[in-house]
Amino acid sequence: MIGVGKIKQYTNVLDKPLSKGKQEVSLSAFAFLFSELVQYNQTQVDNIAELERRLEDAGYSVGARVLELLCHRDKGNRRETRLLGILSFVHSTVWKVLFGKVADSLEKGTEHEDEYMISEKELLVNRFISIPKDMGTFNCGAFVAGIVRGVLDSAGFPAVVTAHFVPMEGQQRPRTTILIKFAEEVLQREARLG
């Protein structure tokens, strides 16, 4: 047969190796698409909280898929089962695949035991976005918060995830902090596992 031997033939599609998936996409193309996503959702809502929720929902489905893909591709079909493990997975592996870099910082909340924060000096989705004054504290990082919630929830760590602007001293622009507040059951389970 012609062509046999040139490309290895896989009889079973499941034996085929997964593509590396390291391709970069155009930042402009993404920025325009994201801008349209925000604009479309804006026409569907009548208040800012609702807009934030819709963006988060859009991110949630991305997160759920990203977890599935990365566990299969990078972790040999295993996923993190411990709190710190999954957090560093989000902070490094997920961030690297989505934004091409590790997140700037991962911290534990000082006031509450169940809170963690991932901070970015300049979140990729916010690179070209200026929030009008009348929208108050609205942050398009809600989309990224949704991705994080999607990953955590699908991995069995239900949490409430929100995005906030935090003003920085000596900096013109505030940074974005993704605040993760885990559900009670997660912490109880962590305590049991020791």
Binding site: F32, S35, F128, I129, S130, P132
Partner: peptide, 15 residues
């Protein structure tokens, strides 16, 4: 690329 800018309207973008 700012979703809050309306085309042909005055520019008010901090960035």
């Amino acid at each position: 690329k700012n979703p809050f800018y309306e085309m042909e309207m005055p520019i008010r973008c901090e960035l």
